[in-house]
């Protein structure tokens, strides 16, 4: 077994047992991780404010917050999965199924169902069900999460395609439409929904076992296991919570669009991962948190908004996120490089 055991250094952290980190580095790194993203956000705002006169107007701020709200809800859930050191690639599929479910369960143009807000709850529960399935498959069958969630994403998109059935269901529910267009204090109601979800996320992360254990598991799974934390249960729970937020995000997109489409979540998975990583929630687990991810969400949204305002083609957005996420991971992982470190 000896040669195989050599390969067991924690694959993504590189924190081999018995090799303490240099004592001064964590402090500087932590400060950089905590305040670097915030600084980057301020710099970006200043830069775009300088380049485009439209950027710093109330209307545009409202646009940014509006479009950030869906991504923020997703990022809250994703953060818990990333804290574990796992990854979730199922967001587009879960959002698609949730979007079609809610569109078919509330008053709509396709059937006579009208469950009102129970329909919204049902869609969120369906999202949670997807998360539960991803979590159970990852922990029970011991499959890496990127593989299970990639499969779940395809399943979600498939179910959504079947539900879609070639005829787009349009929402006919005035009270739901009110949530997308109605405003409180100049911001749409969905923005407040996002703020509420972020607050819940912060509370869960700070004051519940789910949040505490997620960080412990991501920091050092072996230690968490040895100290008696029911690792599998809390991993599954984190995936379930994340699935519920994706479900809610699917509902939010559907209310914004006024109809349920399979493409409800297209691009959001990558944007959410980018946001989390840029905000300082490391993919290796154990670092970062909801607030970090939210700063990342604002960075990504401001970047997209600003690039459009200064006239960059919208087709480049995905590519820009791709470059940013790889660059961010390269920068954060660079100090951990080692000759014999195994990264798959």
């Amino acid at each position: 077994m000896a040669p195989a055991r050599l390969g067991l250094a924690p694959p993504e952290t590189g924190r081999a047992p018995g090799s303490p980190r240099p004592s001064r580095r964590p402090d500087r790194a932590t400060i950089l991780a905590d305040f670097g993203p915030l600084g980057a956000l301020v710099l970006l705002c200043l830069l775009f404010g300088f380049l485009s006169p439209q950027f710093a107007t109330w209307g545009n701020v409202r646009n940014v917050l509006d479009s950030a709200s869906v991504l923020a809800v997703i990022a809250v859930g994703l953060t818990f999965v990333l804290l574990l050191g796992a990854i979730d690639l199922s967001i587009e599929g879960v959002m698609a199924t949730a979007a079609l479910s809610v569109a078919l369960l509330v008053a709509n143009s396709r059937n006579d169902l009208d469950f009102g807000f129970m329909g919204v709850l049902a869609a969120v529960a369906i999202g949670a069900g997807f998360g539960l399935a991803s979590g159970l498959l990852s922990t029970g069958l011991k499959i890496p999460s990127f593989m299970t969630t990639l499969g779940m994403s395809a399943i979600g998109i498939g179910i959504a395609t079947v539900l879609f059935g070639g005829v787009q269901p349009a929402l006919r529910s005035p009270e739901l439409a009110e949530w997308a267009s109605g405003q409180w204090f100049g911001l749409t109601r969905l923005t407040y929904v996002a703020v509420a979800v972020v607050l819940i996320g912060i509370l869960v992360q700070r004051y519940t076992r789910l949040g505490r254990y997620a960080r412990a598991i991501g920091g050092a799974e072996e230690l968490a296991l040895l100290s008696g934390i029911p690792v599998r249960r809390y991993k599954t729970l984190a995936f379930t919570f994340a699935g519920a937020t994706y479900g809610l995000a699917g509902v939010m997109v559907t209310t914004q669009l006024g109809s349920g489409i399979v493409q409800a979540g297209v691009g959001q998975n990558f944007a959410a991962i980018t946001a989390a990583v840029v905000g300082g929630t490391l993919l290796s687990g154990g670092r970062g948190g909801v607030l970090h991810s939210i700063v990342g969400v604002l960075i990504v949204t401001v970047l997209v908004n600003g690039l459009v305002l200064i006239g960059v083609s919208p087709y480049v957005q995905g590519a820009v996120q791709g470059v940013i996420v790889v660059a961010a991971v390269v920068i954060t992982a660079w100090p951990l490089r080692k000759r014999l470190r195994v990264v798959k």
Partner: peptide, 11 residues
Amino acid sequence: AQVPSFLVTLG
């Protein structure tokens, strides 16, 4: 840079 391959190729 020792970045996991799924992430590099996802980017």
